[in-house]
């Protein structure tokens, strides 16, 4: 079992405090969040699907360890906003699901998106499809779905592995407008090569805040930024102390780095 070191025991609660504090602040006053191009293109993609009269494919990825997990829930939060937009435009969205545990959660989230837009009767449970929980069988199924339905737009959010390119290139081949976002750093280059818009890094976790403008989520993003500033300052301080330690043969730098091991 892994357990927290002294550094982790101090830093994680400190970062958590920043995030929770900013969430509370955001509930009382407006906070600014910069424009994220990939997310601004969502309406354009949905609009294009509406004009072409063809469906959209929204995929929430494979997940890291399977089951209901944060990465996939975040993807579902983004997809829920896309579904709300698609309901407004009366455009069909198909959601392939990889993990059976995510199936009821996905159904519930999509049903709620339809209800929030005042169109609960338009919800079709057949559009949320559990395909398989085998990696390449899932990739083949999604690629087949994109090709057969001639998807006008594909949204690939969540955690992906090698199958990312199979799905994204199939979308490219059918001429779909593609927006992707993944925390899997190894798959970002493939998405950049194949998709029209890619959100990278922590934009992935900022996406739902950007789309919903919901104070809790905006506050969380500002809290994350403060935490990142703290990390940056720690890195600069660490570089300075290690350099001083090396120049003066003092253990100050070693002691500092030891704190984070």
């Amino acid at each position: 079992m892994e357990h927290a070191t002294l550094g982790v025991r101090i830093l994680v609660p400190l970062f958590s405090l920043c995030i929770v504090a900013m969430i509370l602040v955001a509930r009382k006053r407006d906070l600014f969040i910069r424009r994220i191009q990939g997310l601004s293109a969502i309406e354009e993609a949905v609009g294009r699907a509406t004009e072409m009269g063809r469906p959209m494919i929204c995929c929430t990825g494979l997940g890291v360890e399977g089951g209901v997990e944060i990465v996939t829930l975040q993807a579902l939060a983004i997809v829920s906003h896309i579904i709300r937009t698609s309901v407004r435009f009366a455009t069909r969205a198909i959601l392939p699901v990889y993990d059976p545990q995510m199936l009821p959660v996905t159904e519930e989230a999509v049903r709620e998106a339809y209800t929030l837009e005042g169109r609960p009767d338009s919800f079709n449970s057949e559009d949320i499809r559990f395909l398989t929980n085998r990696q390449f069988a899932f990739a083949a199924s999604v690629a087949g779905l994109i090709a057969r339905e001639k998807a006008a737009a594909t949204f690939l959010f969540g955690y992906y592995y090698a199958e990312a390119l199979i799905m994204a290139e199939t979308g490219q081949q059918v001429g779909a407008i593609q927006i992707a976002g993944t925390p899997a750093t190894t798959q970002i280059p493939f998405f950049i090569a194949s998709c029209d818009y890619v959100i990278i890094g922590d934009e992935y976790y900022a996406a739902s805040a950007y789309l919903s403008r919901e104070p809790t989520q905006l506050g969380s993003i500002v809290g994350q930024d403060i935490a990142k500033w703290l990390i940056l300052l720690t890195i600069i301080l660490g570089c300075a102390l290690v350099s001083i330690g090396a120049a003066t043969s003092s253990p100050i730098g070693a002691n500092f780095t030891q704190f984070f091991k």
Partner: peptide, 19 residues
């Protein structure tokens, strides 16, 4: 890549905390 990973780690912590 590490900078992206730091942002993702903090983002994951924030979503986890909110839930």
């Amino acid at each position: 890549t590490r900078a992206i990973a730091v942002g993702l780690g903090i983002g994951s912590l924030a979503v986890g905390l909110r839930i």
